[in-house]
């Protein structure tokens, strides 16, 4: 069975890029367009790994991590944060919130897949 990725990003472009890259690497990708959408899809998708953007309307990436780690979902699934910034304080904040790792935008396929494999083992 293909490993499942839940990709949450409000940018259609990034969602498409993730889909193409990840499907090419043998993942099954479900996209969500903001935090609320992503968290609500989580139970049905039961992903092996979550990739989430930080800056999003309705619910941001920190909200997503919070909802998955605590709240109703309460899961320790690996969560990768997609960031444009490589600012250390942002990474620290994401880690504190419960993120497993991060991918810095713009990402290339190779590093995306390697990071994904590193945290999910998929």
């Amino acid at each position: 069975m293909k490993p499942k990725v839940l990709a949450i990003d409000d940018s259609r472009t990034i969602r498409e890029l993730l889909r193409v890259s990840l499907e090419g690497a043998g993942f099954e990708v479900t996209s969500a367009e903001d935090g609320v959408d992503g968290v609500s899809r989580f139970p049905d998708v039961a992903p092996d790994v979550v990739i989430t953007d930080i800056n999003m309307p309705n619910m941001d990436g920190f909200g997503v991590i919070d909802a998955i780690r605590k709240g109703a979902v309460n899961s320790t699934v690996p969560i990768l944060v997609l960031t444009t910034e490589s600012a250390p304080e942002l990474k620290a904040r994401a880690r504190e919130a419960g993120a497993t790792g991060w991918i810095v935008k713009p990402f290339d396929d190779t590093s995306l897949i390697s990071v994904l494999k590193r945290v999910s083992g998929a």
Partner: peptide
Amino acid sequence: TSPADAEKKQEPKAANGP
């Protein structure tokens, strides 16, 4: 038996998005 396997299915939260 690590925590990653311990996900539980939960009802989705009410979505208040656009």
